[in-house]
Design a protein around this nucleic acid. Sequence first.
DNA 1: CCGACAAGTTGCCTTCGACAACCAATCCGG
DNA 2: CCGGATTGGTTGTCGAAGGCAACTTGTCGG
Lengths: 146, 146
Amino acid sequence: MSQRDDLMGGLEGEFGVLLHRLRRVVADRARAVHPDLTGASYLLLGHLLEHGPMRSSCLVETFGVDKGAVSRQVRQLLDLGLVERRPDPEDGRAQLVAVSESAREALVEVSGQRRKLLADRLSDWTEDDLRGFVSVLGRYNAALAD
Amino acid sequence: MSQRDDLMGGLEGEFGVLLHRLRRVVADRARAVHPDLTGASYLLLGHLLEHGPMRSSCLVETFGVDKGAVSRQVRQLLDLGLVERRPDPEDGRAQLVAVSESAREALVEVSGQRRKLLADRLSDWTEDDLRGFVSVLGRYNAALAD
DNA sequence: CCGACAAGTTGCCTTCGACAACCAATCCGG
DNA sequence: CCGGATTGGTTGTCGAAGGCAACTTGTCGG
């Protein structure tokens, strides 16, 4: 059990470093999509791109942040023309947030740059390495869920 | 290559969620160590506990954040009595930051609570799973380094 | 029709980090 | 030995980000 504890300690340490470095990386990529796009909004945008249009409250739930924060970030995305809003056919008082076409293009473009940048640094990773990493990260995320 | 791109996309998504959830988890754990301890300072403290006394500039380098921020967080740790400072024998103008004895005890205590909390959620992870996760996280961190 | 409720919005506060200007001690070339 | 250049660290100011709470508004159920 003490071995397991040591591993958990190492996990914390790596997460601490990751948390700080990722903040900067995300902010940089956000700026690449649009000069005035902030990091948090970029993450929302990415989630919308992957999972399709959804309402703000859904974003609140999956990211586990305050709905006020999401409201402001969606507002920013709207102002920058990166998302559009339309009424939710299933609930009259809700609105769906959808990635705009121009944002989709920009995200694909930035995604290409990112791939080039990380290609050499992760070149020794096999596809299985990558797949396993994503999977295990997902399981850890699930463990963190409230 | 398109498979690899998809995997990278999934990686981003998981990191986005992780980034937000971890923020809250870290803040909670910091409060458990000391009511007035903030999240960022807690991460510094954890790093000091694992790697032994070091100077502020070393923390700046490993975490990749501004030295002003580190200076303030170390100040907070000092005010709370969680770290002590002593002159660096190898460089007259530098100071070493070291975890205090009381802080060490508190960290071990919180570590125990944390283990209990995650024990059931990660119970299906083998020790190899855990070790592999830590290792691969370290490699990813290395890839993020500037 | 009316109260309960859910979706969003907004204001206020704290945490956090970037940037820059700044002090102090040390190192180094002459 | 001396005077800049360098390095360790502090401080002030700013924007990003989230938590909390009060509030608006539209919807649903009795």
